[in-house]
């Protein structure tokens, strides 16, 4: 495969890795903060899945990039502007309703996305997708149940869930944005055409929202920019935290 193609696949793997890493990081913030011990363990399992997924994508990206790049140089030595995760992943963890709603919206998306990525012409991406898909099926089962429990629980839980969804909805259109890089890779059979997933995603979500007794709002406001490094203010703080040791003691092995 040509170097140009490799560069593009690296960038693609890198962005998928960034999505997973930032999401895993946010979930890991729940450790010792869950509403009860069983849920603490369960959320940590999900966080571990995402960190594992991030490592798979980033290791692959690093291999393609070469020149001494590793999963860790990618994770720890890039600044905010070079990070390419979608904005929805970097929003602070919020309360349990926010975390649940985000997880659910993403699980429905990832189920579709990973299913499609299993058919990628790139065998590494397809293999990572296959492993991740198993995890996501389980995540979705959990997050969907939580949507129903919170939506049909108390007035307070329903209200918190509704609020969370409204705070999140404007970040969902970005999940379906296809830029020039992805357009290229789609035509090569490597990347997933996200735009084509939106309808199925929406109808799956609507069904669950309906069962949960919560309105699925239309995205009347839309924020985007993650893929080009145009992030929210939250990401910088996340990275300051995550990269502190590596930045304070550059060039060391850990």
């Amino acid at each position: 495969m040509s170097n140009v193609a490799n560069e593009k696949i690296a960038a693609y793997a890198n962005r998928l890795g960034d999505d997973s890493l930032i999401h895993g990081h946010r979930l890991s913030e729940w450790c010792s903060n869950g509403p009860f011990l069983e849920e603490d363990l369960a959320m940590t399992n999900v966080a571990l899945d995402y960190i594992g997924r991030a490592r798979n994508f980033l290791t692959y990206a690093a291999e393609l990039i070469g020149g001494g790049a590793t999963e860790d140089t990618l994770a720890y030595e890039r600044d905010c502007l070079e990070y390419t995760n979608l904005l929805i992943y970097e929003l602070p963890k919020g309360d349990f309703a926010f975390t649940t709603a985000r997880q659910y919206l993403l699980d429905e998306f990832e189920l579709l996305f990973l299913t499609a990525l299993c058919n990628s012409e790139d065998s590494t991406l397809a293999a990572v997708a296959e492993k991740s898909l198993k995890e996501t099926r389980y995540h979705l089962r959990r997050s969907k149940e939580w949507m129903l429990r919170l939506g049909n629980g108390t007035e307070e839980s329903k209200e918190k869930l509704q609020t969370a969804v409204e705070q999140l909805i404007g970040y969902t259109p970005e999940l379906f944005e296809v830029d020039a890089l992805e357009k290229d890779l789609i035509s090569g059979g490597i990347a997933v055409d996200r735009a084509g997933l939106e309808e199925s995603w929406r109808s799956a979500c609507e069904k669950t929202f309906d069962e949960a007794g919560v309105n699925m709002p239309q995205a009347v406001w839309r924020v985007k920019g993650g893929r080009t490094g145009f992030h929210t203010e939250h990401l910088g703080h996340l990275l300051a935290d995550m990269q502190f040791v590596q930045r304070a003691y550059p060039g060391c092995q850990w």
């Binding site: 009860f36 011990l37 069983e38 369960a42």
Partner: peptide, 20 residues
């Protein structure tokens, strides 16, 4: 043992707690 609201949730937590 563990705490859960219903048996489905108990199954899931059993998976997360006892089969890590």
């Amino acid at each position: 043992s563990l705490h859960a609201e219903d048996s489905e949730q108990a199954l899931e937590y059993a998976r997360d707690v006892y089969t890590r």
